[in-house]
Computed example of a mutant assay.
Amino acid sequence: MRIIVAKPAGVQCPSLETLETCFNSNPDGAGLMWADGDQVRIIKGFMEFDEFASTLKALGDVTNTGLVMHFRITTHGGTRPECCHPFPLTDDDAALRALDICAPLGVAHNGIITGMDTDAKTSDTMAYIRDVLTPLQRMAGDLLASDDAMGVVESTVGSKLAFLEPDGAITTVGDFIEDNGVFYSNASFKPAPRVWRPTTPQSAASAWRAFDEWDDEPTDGDMFDLIARLPYASCASCDLAEECALDCPYCSSESEAEYNSIVDYWDDDENEVMAC
């Protein structure tokens, strides 16, 4: 899981408090890109929020600047500055790993892309940009202007993207949440309450047995297996299921309700918000 924060030109930047919430919910590195009129400038690899905040402050007033920020949780490629987003659209591995670079087009991703050629230093997003997006750009001439090319992107990525162009234009793929003119790829920009989700002892026990069977640090496959055992149909498409699965049967994020139209009601006996 991770979050994209896409701020169009003419919209006020989210507060540092909101951005710190994003970082705390997605603490494995951050980056940002902004449009300068000629190119997209990308700076990434902030492993502490203070480093990120200092760089953002140094940009001054960015109200009239197209700006995309990204906060990461590691899936593939390891927790390293080079795997932070955003990325230039290129098939050059060195450029994809660069911590400070300019490009004609930048991109950030939220989700997991399966079937990519990843390794210890290459994330699924890096591989997708290198092996899918860049060839599409070469074939289409202008990726974002080609309905056919963007149709391929939507059908293959299965998650969310934000592209930034030098003139500040932002193109998103997937469902984003708009808040005060800023677009967020999930709800982890908000402090999330702990919401009890009703379950049965048998289904909860099944999920916890999966957890107890792990001898070492859980792999992606272990996490997907645990999510599959959870008794809530909504978890299968929840952006944050991988993170809150271990809190079963608590929901760690509001996004589960927002994305899956779960009905909340007040339970007088428990004095808690329930989800059904």
Score class of each variant (00 low, 15 high):
V68E: 11
S203L: 00
N110C: 08
F224Y: 11
T114I: 03
D92E: 15
F52P: 00
P88S: 09
A30S: 10
E242K: 15
A257I: 06
E82S: 14
P88A: 11
G78W: 12
R197D: 00
R2D: 15
K160D: 06
D220H: 11
P81I: 12
L133A: 05
D212L: 14
S155R: 12
S261P: 01
S155F: 10
A120S: 14
K160V: 02
F163E: 10
G141D: 11
D215W: 06
P8G: 11
F71S: 00
D269W: 10
T63A: 09
D92I: 10
T171M: 08
K7T: 08
T65M: 09
A120D: 15
R2T: 06
E272K: 15
V153R: 13
M47C: 09
G158P: 03
F23V: 00
E178W: 03
D264I: 05
L136E: 14
S159T: 13
F52L: 01
A210I: 02
C248E: 01
P193I: 00
R194D: 04
P81C: 11
T199S: 08
D28E: 12
T65N: 10
E258H: 10
M1L: 02
I101P: 01
D268G: 09
C13A: 14
V152F: 13
F87K: 09
N26M: 02
V11M: 06
P231N: 15
A245I: 04
K44T: 05
D175L: 07
V182T: 14
C83Q: 13
I101S: 06
T199N: 10
V173C: 12
D61T: 02
H109L: 01
L19H: 00
L161Y: 04
L16T: 01
S185L: 01
I177A: 09
S54N: 06
V195S: 03
G60F: 01
N271L: 05
D100L: 05
R41K: 08
T122D: 07
G115T: 06
L161P: 06
S15P: 03
I170H: 09
D225I: 05
L161W: 04
E254A: 10
T21K: 14
E256I: 01
W208Y: 14
M139N: 11
R130C: 13
S15Y: 08
T63G: 03
D247G: 13
P135Q: 02
L164Y: 04
G106V: 02
T75F: 15
G29Q: 09
D38F: 02
V157N: 04
D225V: 05
C244E: 13
Y232C: 00
Y184M: 07
F211Y: 08
K7L: 04
A241H: 02
L143G: 14
I112E: 12
H109G: 01
R130W: 11
I262D: 05
C102D: 12
E20T: 02
A187E: 05
C244I: 04
A95V: 05
A35G: 09
W208S: 08
A9P: 02
K190F: 04
D38Q: 07
A192P: 07
T65E: 07
D220Y: 10
V263T: 15
D267M: 10
V157A: 08
D147I: 09
G221E: 14
E256K: 14
I170L: 09
